[in-house]
Nucleic acid binder design. Structure first.
Length: 489
RNA sequence: GGCGCAUUCGUCUAGCGGCCUAGGACACCGCCCUCUCAAGGCGGAGAUCAGGGGUUCGAAUCCCCUAUGCGCUACCA
């Protein structure tokens, strides 16, 4: 097996949005494939008809594409091992299920969902250690079977799990894991609607598609002995298993919607960079050493190794993601940043702002906002004052803590007369305004603070003179006049 | 309940018997820079390595027990 080429797969189920945890699994598979020069395959596990969600496949694939994760075989591009939709491989699973029954490794079960539910309820009530199928149909006589068939019941196919012995396997990160067969139940292989369960389809396809390594989430560890048993019943050679630590929510349980955004597309829409997501997600469960944590994708591919995947689940830290995203934004060229930012501004700036948003103008504000950004969507709100007509704020904001109304008015009036005479460049603005502060008997900080609120509507903004220069004389004078109005009212 | 996996600063992690009086990063606090906010620089606080037994000259690192957490326990994946 180890001599074989690396062939790994990402096998999402189209039952919802592209969950961050699933995407991370895809990412690890992809990194491993690219690192070892193997193949990365996408296979759609659409065997649950009732839970199928329209548009889910495209959303998942889009998420991967956005991150730059590409595949060598898959639903859209095909490949030598297709089809890559399990719903198109039903005949294969059915044939193998029949084979398993014929060989005595599986059997037909006619139990109704109702009987099963009742049985489990009773078991729970009696506090029995086992809460799974009671093997009612495991040893049905031909006669009994005929009776059920005559009633028109479509059976499911169940695996005939060995009653004793144990099953163990060597997980590449967990090591040797052993289960008593007696703790395993006779799980369903083929449902009554003719679709296979995960267990059957997974094993059959991994074998047929010559998958060499299975890297999947930790939650699968418990079903691995069933899979091993199936491989052996089918006389297939099992792949190498690696169970990945899970991504957890802030309370330490499996990351889910109640923890906040869990779909990769939400992060895209909030204005996170693919590079930041890749870097961050990889570090949730993998590390190179004791200090490196900023990686390009190429570096990740170069260094990635199964041995350095950690064993424990990791809590998803929004804080660190935001820091990392800010880091990548700061490292962009102004032109790149502008192109990334523009669509977000178009979409999220207040309606009153004329569209299309001016590229040249955005180019001008980039140097002022670049180091202040953490996400693009946030920029549309935080720096809207650059675009709108008049910022909206409470008059008291102009006064701050120590300024009296009279002093503020006097300062703004003087500033206005000075400003009217000036050309709006950062240097000339500073040259005129700095002395004015002392003439007014104000500290520069207080005076500039006042002007900052008047011109931007906020106490926190990029450097004042540059901001005013970009805003332009006309806008600044109008805003200061408006500020005076607020104070006099 | 049963089975399985896990357990190092609040969080992500380094550590695979002596280099550890446990290193880095995010977050937090302070200082510097400074017109505010950031960014950046410097510094600080923060983990008796879940607890208890062993093994060893020596254990965060190996073994056992306990506790806790998480996962699985569907005709879902």
């Amino acid at each position: 097996m180890s001599e074989r080429n690396v062939r790994v797969r990402f096998a999402p189920s189209p039952t919802g949005y592209p969950h961050i945890g699933n995407i991370r699994t895809a990412l690890f598979n992809w990194l491993f494939a690219r690192h070892s020069g193997g193949s990365f395959i996408v296979r759609i596990e659409d065997t649950d008809v009732s839970r199928k969600v329209k548009g889910a496949i495209e959303a998942i694939l889009d998420g991967l594409r956005w991150l730059g994760i590409d595949w060598d075989e898959g639903p859209d591009i095909g490949g030598d091992y297709g089809p890559y939709f399990q719903s198109q491989r039903l005949d294969i699973y059915q044939k193998i299920a029949r084979l398993l029954v014929a060989d005595g490794y599986a059997y037909y079960c006619y139990c109704s969902p109702g009987r099963l539910a009742k049985m489990r309820a009773e078991m729970a009530e009696r506090k029995e250690s086992t809460r799974s199928y009671d093997r009612h149909c495991r040893n049905l006589s031909q006669e009994e079977r005929d009776k059920f068939e005559a009633q028109g019941i479509t059976p499911v196919v169940r695996f005939k799990t060995p009653l004793d012995g144990e099953t163990s396997f060597n997980d590449l990160i967990k090591g040797e894991v052993t289960f008593d067969n007696s703790t395993l139940d006779d799980f369903v292989l083929l449902k009554s609607d003719g679709y296979p369960t995960y267990h059957l389809a997974n094993i059959v396809d991994d074998h047929l598609m010559e998958i060499s390594h299975v890297l999947r989430a930790d939650e699968w560890l418990s079903s691995t002995p069933r899979h091993i048993l199936l491989y052996s019943a089918l006389a297939y050679e099992p792949p190498l298993f690696t169970h990945l630590p899970m991504i957890l929510g802030s309370d330490g349980s499996k990351l889910s919607k109640r923890h906040g955004a869990v779909s990769i597309t939400e992060y895209r829409d909030q204005g996170y960079l693919p590079q930041a997501m890749i870097n961050f997600l990889t570090l949730l469960g993998w590390s190179l050493d004791d200090r490196t944590e900023l990686f390009t994708t190429e570096e990740l591919v170069r260094h990635f190794s199964l041995e350095r995947i950690s064993k424990t689940g990791a809590i998803f830290s929004q804080d660190k993601l935001m820091w990392m995203n800010g880091h990548y934004i700061r490292n962009m060229s102004p032109g790149e940043l502008r192109e990334h930012l523009l669509p977000f501004l178009e979409k999220h700036l207040p309606e009153e702002v004329k569209r299309p948003v001016s590229r040249e103008y955005v180019q001008q504000i980039i140097p002022l906002i670049q180091e202040r950004l953490t996400t693009f969507k946030e920029a549309a709100d935080q720096f809207a004052f650059f675009f709108i007509d008049q910022p909206d704020y409470e008059p008291d904001l102009l006064l701050g803590k120590k300024l009296t109304r009279e002093a503020a008015i006097a300062a703004l009036v003087d500033a206005l007369t000075q400003l009217r005479k000036l050309t709006f460049e950062a240097s000339s603005l500073e040259l005129a305004l700095r002395p004015l502060a002392s003439e007014l008997g104000m500290k520069t900080g207080d005076f500039f603070g006042l002007l900052r609120v008047a011109t931007t509507g906020s106490t926190a903004a990029p450097p004042l003179f540059q901001t005013m220069a970009v805003l332009g004389k006309d806008k600044c004078l109008k805003r200061i006049e408006a500020a005076l109005d607020k104070l006099r009212r």
